[in-house]
């Protein structure tokens, strides 16, 4: 089965030379990947990152932004490796949502 990320040669639309100014949160996603995959930490391999992106369904893959896919994948890898638990991540995200609402 051809996977949806493996798109070389498929029909698609006209290329629009669009630019995108990266937002700070996107740069910080990138920074997380760089740190976690470096020699010192080795908590994430680039191919694990790719695998967890590829295992998104086709709909989600197309709908999500580039760094949303990365963020999804980083969280999955850290959970799979036991670096963080689902529960602590859920609690932390709720805490941040509360904090943002109060701000």
């Amino acid at each position: 089965m051809r996977s949806h990320h493996d798109m070389g040669g498929l029909p698609a639309g006209r290329c629009e030379p669009d630019e995108h100014e990266y937002e700070m949160w996107e740069k910080r996603v990138d920074a997380l990947m760089m740190l976690l995959s470096d020699k010192e930490r080795q908590l994430l391999k680039v191919d694990e990152l790719r695998r967890n992106i590829e295992s998104l369904g086709a709909d989600a893959y197309d709908r999500m932004g580039y760094y949303e896919r990365w963020m999804h994948s980083i969280s999955q890898t850290l959970i799979q490796r036991g670096v963080i638990s689902i529960d602590e991540l859920g609690r932390k995200m709720a805490e941040i949502e509360d904090r943002d609402e109060r701000a």
């Binding site: 997380l32 932004g65 963020m71 969280s75 991540l89 995200m93 805490e95």
Partner: peptide
């Protein structure tokens, strides 16, 4: 969804 992943980024950064 943007808000969700932005929060996830902050959360993971803080946890780590």
């Amino acid at each position: 969804s943007r808000g969700y992943y932005r929060r996830m980024q902050s959360a993971i950064e803080e946890l780590l």
